[in-house]
Nucleic acid binder design. Sequence first.
DNA 1: TTGTAAGCGTTATCAC
DNA 2: GTGATAACGCTTACAA
Lengths: 345, 345
Amino acid sequence: MGKVNIKSIAAALNLSPATVSRALNDSHEVKATTKERVLAYAAKHHYRPNPFAKHLKTGKTNLIGVVIPFLSSPFFLEFIDELYKLSLLQHYTLLPFQTQNNERTEKEALDFLIRQNVAGIIISPAFENSNTELLKSIHYDHCPVILFDRIQHDLNTYKIGIHNSLETFKATEELIKKGRKRIAFLCGKDIGNAKDRIRGYKNALHNYSIPFQKDYVIDADYQDPTENIDSELKEIFQRLQTADHMPNAIVGGTDTLSIKILGVLADLDLRVPDDVAVIGFTNTNLANYLNPALSTIRQPTQQMAQLALDLLIRLMEKQQDRREIQYDDFLLGATTIYRKSTEIA
Amino acid sequence: MGKVNIKSIAAALNLSPATVSRALNDSHEVKATTKERVLAYAAKHHYRPNPFAKHLKTGKTNLIGVVIPFLSSPFFLEFIDELYKLSLLQHYTLLPFQTQNNERTEKEALDFLIRQNVAGIIISPAFENSNTELLKSIHYDHCPVILFDRIQHDLNTYKIGIHNSLETFKATEELIKKGRKRIAFLCGKDIGNAKDRIRGYKNALHNYSIPFQKDYVIDADYQDPTENIDSELKEIFQRLQTADHMPNAIVGGTDTLSIKILGVLADLDLRVPDDVAVIGFTNTNLANYLNPALSTIRQPTQQMAQLALDLLIRLMEKQQDRREIQYDDFLLGATTIYRKSTEIA
DNA sequence: TTGTAAGCGTTATCAC
DNA sequence: GTGATAACGCTTACAA
């Protein structure tokens, strides 16, 4: 069978392409009967509009680019999943990309998205101020950009995240109240929100007059959660153990690290929570099945996704120069769940 | 600044659009100096080719559609992740879609992919023979389709999976050898590979003269792993308990169920492995950190992704009528890891 | 209410 | 080597 497009439909029905186009787009200026004829024929012959032609003409797409560090982290996975569900309802199509915390890969993803002429972009940057100039030029001249999760970024736009310093403050405080004073903090190197999370941790120590120890802030450098950083972590803690300087509590600053640390501690024959209590950021129900069940700080991914999409759509529809808009930061509340790993007798 | 496209470059350099196009495509029939001039100008003005125009003209894309039941299952996540890495190297772009085990959603995804004019599709169908006719018409008339994981499907194409019956046979046999005889099997309703997995389980029972019991095959009907089927499972096992017919071992037929069952058993105050031993399909390192560490059958996602992409590219490049190709099935080996949950004293 | 025609950015087929 | 020109499938003034 030949290809079925507007021209062939027009020919078959003795109409002009313009009328067919109008009928397919449910224009009010076309007779009801013609509309029916066209629609019936189109359905019968499985007409599929060619988006390339359409977009070439209109210059618009219903694509939304989503740029995240990686999928293999429960938080980002949940976020994307929520976003999928929501965008489906609004007839937007998601184009997800991973950066592996790498600025170059991020740039390539952004370039690709622009070539695809996406209508908007939702991003959690590879690291603090990665691709700042590129993102600014996209946001100002091409399509709106919204930041989430890693919102430490000079791009002037809506930012959706949680109150990172507050959350780590509370978690650290909880450990202190339970009598632990040698508290370590795990964080990803250069990750956009690490600073805030460390600040909360430091403030809590300060509030309870516990001296801050530099070697208790443990930077892990990873591009990918599936990477084997376990041995790196193990070495660090082994060194602390040897120096008789082992912490008796740990705050996990990222999804990935919070889970990995349990395996590391088990390897070192340290009992959780007796020897070392653990609490960390993590968005997975699996935390409850871990050994021991892990206390977690859980980000509200559903809310975050909803808000990101709403704000983005609002920006996409607005004609105003995006340089001149007054943007707000949205800091949502996280949910902390205390489980076995912080249950100190 | 005005838009920079082939025409504007041509105007600025006093060339024709045709020459510019040739230069950008590194055609040999264009003078080296002109080529340089064009490339320099393009780079300086951040020229980005418009894929919509290009594809409208050539009718070809470098897009690969990937259709999976859901992302929130470790196996599919790993698979997609591997596919991302590999396709990046080959300059293909992935368009991933989830079906939630729903034929209608799957159809919408496939329709979308065709409209996007993807060069090929890799799919694990929503269930056995879902969208058979549509997939056939796509494969024969539009672009090659490759099946993976859930390969019980009438579509005649390359199929990549594991030897499901063999793997469940071995797992069941192991439990039998450890003295367990009341062995239950968990599986997703209608999922394409459930039949084979059940067959392996049955064969093992048969080989050791253990009578097959119908109520030990437990169907769980879920659209999404994050769904709350825990209570459903709990009820089923509670009923078995009451009837004094509780199994003392369980084989988990899917990623999702294998993990969930641990929580259910804990809720029912059953000890693993003492009261009930558990082994199941699951592609996550987290299995090692679960309570207790879960024995797993792990699919070779990296190999599967590599093979899927290789075969797809081969088909995309071949001109032959796809009805007439002789397709093979590829059954790769899985890796079974025995951990605490099957450690029977 | 419908038709005509131009044009979106690119590539391919001719000429020159 | 390079330049005109048509064409891909669609939308949209403008005309009728």
